[in-house]
Design a binder for these strands. Structure first.
Lengths: 333, 333
DNA sequence: TCTGGCTAGTAAAGCGGTTGCGTAAAGTGG
DNA sequence: CCACTTTACGCAACCGCTTTACTAGCCAGA
């Protein structure tokens, strides 16, 4: 590997000049520039990025914190971020925390250590305030998909409430009146918004919601199954369910099936997320699609703006869309 | 941020001593060590990793090239690598190439530029030789999951052939004789091995394979569906299929269903990979599980051995296992 | 008493860039 | 022809850490 010094010697100038020339901080006579160019080509010189980083104190890399990269939703998001970052010459350091506070903090430490210039954070659990408190001390952070209340950084979310409203309305329009909602953690931002959207739609249709028809728990298949089994055990179960996530929806399907019932014959179902597997299911899951890739792209753009000191919008909301498949039918009369 | 120099001053020693002490290259009298420890604690000193990297010429980061991070299989693999790397103090730079040669080369360039100390490569397309040729010039590379023929680096694969054999035997044991194989690209290493395993099992059972019962194409849902539709259009379709991947198996399910037939009632089916969604399907897909996380862990370990100049094994083979779900039944008589 | 071998460190030269000051030489206006 | 501004660069410090080569001081053995 050749160095800037070798280039300088070959071009008969100083390293200062080469460095400035390469960074466009100087205008050189064509002849000098040509000599430098020639030397660079001859030596196949490429700047040592490690040295550059040390000198500049920047790493031209960003970190990305996801709860679980193996979750297709986060994987897709990650891919989009990486894609966009690459375009701007940034590397991405992935870190999947497994929802582990330890690892979240390690990730933040890296940021502080100058390892990375900024951080895109995704989380999927409610914060007890400790994360929020920590974040205050850090530099360039962007929150994606899920809020951490009390943190004052740019945030990018989807229209959770609108989406939930559309999902619920879709069920109402199919003729259902007893529509349950099995959603995410009661304290989690997205779950709160989705619940609100569900209530909106029900209220708009003039339907009174029985509190027993609302269940909140983890965004997981297991919770979906358990909650649905519980509902089915009731005297008069609902005819439709709006699930807070596709994982929950899968659990619901399992529960329904295990009772010898069918989706959508006995229970209509709408999910949220449009995970890649949503259309692999039988029946295909009607769900709310999030603009995953867009979230990632805009997330990176926002972070870059932050790094470049141009102030990005405080809050960006991305629209969602209802994807109709085969898990909704009119109620059996 | 405090520096090693400040620590040295506070502890009344030289930076050399602090550096050596921290890197366990020196043994100090307890009293001196205590002074240094105290200074570090007091100043909340953490070494500047950028400086360390420059000085050492190592980046303590590895690259990971995957065709598509959004594919659950690769995502899981990536998560395992990341996990293991983290434990050893390495960062992981993810790069999903989308099967794009350009991006593959960019990834390799980074490696050369000292961006990373080594690279874990995964690919999913047959190489025309150009990639293999390029790889020869590079340093620390480990190949995971799929071979690039002619490349002389440590490789970690699963027992494709054994797995295929077990899958096929499972169908035979269920009573099937006409068993088709719809597999991956004819020139792709894993597909070749899996086909061989299928032939093994059939030969062992004394069943002659009709060439028309073997189809090779992409590891994709679309190919699976098309191939299966074609088979079903034949005069006497098979009663069972061993699919080269779970994606292919899903396509097969769709095809079977679209003809008004059922899995496993009319067609028994075994996949390969055990993707996270395999058990979400209805019926649950019987398939061959790859030790995904293990692949990742061992992949990192092998790369690290390479970096540390201890020569790792040329080839590691990881066992697979048959996971029985509900897509296999005896043939209808 | 001298030599040699520890012990417990240190000074200084990198690693490969960037950058705040300078400055010699050439050009310009009066 | 002189003072002044450009033009075209260079010197050397700096980023924070590692490492090679060296030394001061002490003790043991001959």
């Amino acid at each position: 590997m050749s160095t800037i010094n070798e280039v300088a010697i070959m071009a008969r100038v100083s390293t200062t000049t080469v460095s400035r020339y390469l960074n466009n901080r100087i205008e050189l006579p064509a002849e000098t520039a040509a000599r430098i160019d020639a030397a660079i080509a001859a030596l196949d010189y490429r700047p040592n990025i490690l040295a550059k980083r040390l000198s500049l104190g920047r790493s031209e890399a960003i970190g990305m914190m996801t709860p679980e990269i193996a979750n297709p939703f986060f994987a897709e998001l990650a891919a989009a971020v990486e894609d966009e970052a690459e375009k701007h010459g940034y590397s991405v350091l992935m870190s999947s925390t497994g929802g582990n506070r330890e690892r979240e903090l390690a990730s933040l430490r890296r940021l502080k250590d100058g390892h990375v210039d900024g951080l895109i954070m995704m989380t999927n659990r409610p914060d007890d305030g400790s994360l929020a408190a920590t974040l205050h001390h850090y530099g360039h952070i962007v929150l994606i998909d899920e809020d951490i209340p009390g943190v004052n950084v740019p945030k990018i979310f989807v229209e959770n409430r609108e989406g939930a409203r559309a999902a619920t309305r879709h069920l109402i329009e199919a003729g259902h009146r007893r529509i349950a909602h099995i959603g995410g953690p009661a304290k989690l931002f997205s779950a709160i918004e989705r619940l609100a959207g569900y209530r909106d739609a029900m209220a708009e249709a003039g339907i009174t919601v029985d509190d027993g028809d609302i269940r909140q728990g983890e965004y997981s298949r297991e919770f979906g199954r358990a909650a649905m089994l519980d509902m089915l055990a009731g005297a008069e179960p609902p005819t439709a369910v709006f699930a807070g996530s596709d994982f929950i929806a899968i659990g619901i399907m399992e529960a329904v099936r295990s009772k010898g019932l069918g989706v959508p014959r006995d229970i209509s179902l709408v999910g949220f997320d449009d995970m890649p597997f949503a259309d692999l299911l039988a029946p295909g899951l009607t769900t709310i699609r999030q603009p995953t890739a867009e979230l990632g792209r805009i997330g990176f753009g926002t972070l870059k703006a932050l790094i470049d000191k141009t102030s990005p919008p405080e809050l960006t909301r991305l629209p969602v869309a209802l994807v109709k498949r085969n898990s909704v039918a009119p109620p059996r009369s």
